[in-house]
């Protein structure tokens, strides 16, 4: 069984009062951090200390703490969601760190995700992209029997691989261009595998990609940082599918 030990950590945390204020890294020392703690529990402990000292706690987004809601969003030592692969910040545990470590904690940094306060950013741009076409237009109550549509197992699995995206935005934060291509491609690829997605195929890819460009996300230039940062291992091959879909839609 995993054993419990205690760490002393030097934290450098991004503090920014609001969107228009200038931010800076602040230093905090934290002792007696149990290796059983999650990264966010470590920040909870820091915040309790700050409150007791009469200082403002560090604001950070989080909710489910099970790696599925996509709300947590920290750049840890320069890496979106930290060094541990395929792990959202909330699932990262302190046993992955060493006694005496210095840990830098910053928000997602991207033009399309402006900082609201400290480590909290505004990701409504993602909702806007989905509202441009990330769905099938099926009226409630009008669906045929579910088994009237046969979908081969491997296609359902591929669609599920793409649909696993949690919309956290780590792909954007990791991309040197601030591109949302992996996020957009995952949704487009999901529907490209499924017969339900066929009817609105062209419109979907043109509108979603168009919306992504309008919102100030950058272009994809195949760095692959997005895939490396993705906590759900969404594959960069979905971006190739998105391009194929786009070309087919744009030139037909």
């Amino acid at each position: 069984m995993d054993t419990n030990s205690k760490l002393t950590l030097n934290l450098k945390v991004w503090r920014q009062k609001n969107g228009s204020a200038k931010g800076k890294l602040a230093d905090y020392k934290l002792t007696d951090v149990s290796t059983h703690m999650s990264f966010l529990e470590m920040l909870d402990v820091l915040n309790e200390q700050l409150i007791k000292q009469g200082e403002d706690p560090v604001e950070f987004d989080n909710d489910c703490r099970e790696g599925i809601c996509g709300m947590c969003s920290l750049v840890i030592n320069g890496v979106a969601h930290g060094q541990e692969s395929s792990t959202a910040t909330c699932q990262l545990h302190m046993r992955k760190f060493n006694d005496g470590d210095t840990i830098t904690i910053e928000p997602w940094r991207s033009k399309a995700f402006p900082v609201i306060k400290d480590l909290v950013v505004d990701r409504t741009a993602f909702d806007q992209i989905i509202s441009a076409g990330g769905y099938t237009s099926c009226r409630v109550g009008s669906a045929a029997d579910a088994n009237s549509l046969l979908i081969p197992k491997d296609m359902a699995e591929k669609a599920m691989d793409a649909a696993a995206c949690i919309g956290c935005g780590a792909c954007v934060a990791a991309c040197p261009n601030g591109s949302a291509s992996l996020f957009v491609a995952a949704k487009i690829a999901q529907f490209s595998y499924l017969p339900q997605g066929k009817a609105e195929r062209k419109k979907r890819v043109l509108n979603m990609v168009g919306k992504m460009d309008d919102l100030g996300f950058g272009d994809c230039s195949n760095h692959g940082e997005c895939e490396a940062a993705c906590p759900k291992e969404i594959s960069i091959t979905h971006i190739a599918i998105m391009r194929k879909e786009y070309v087919k839609a744009a030139f037909s």
Partner: peptide, 14 residues
């Protein structure tokens, strides 16, 4: 039925 029409990728058999 509704969720399948929405493209929810439920588990399938071969």
């Amino acid at each position: 039925d509704q969720c399948v029409a929405q493209g929810v990728p439920f588990a399938r058999e071969y």
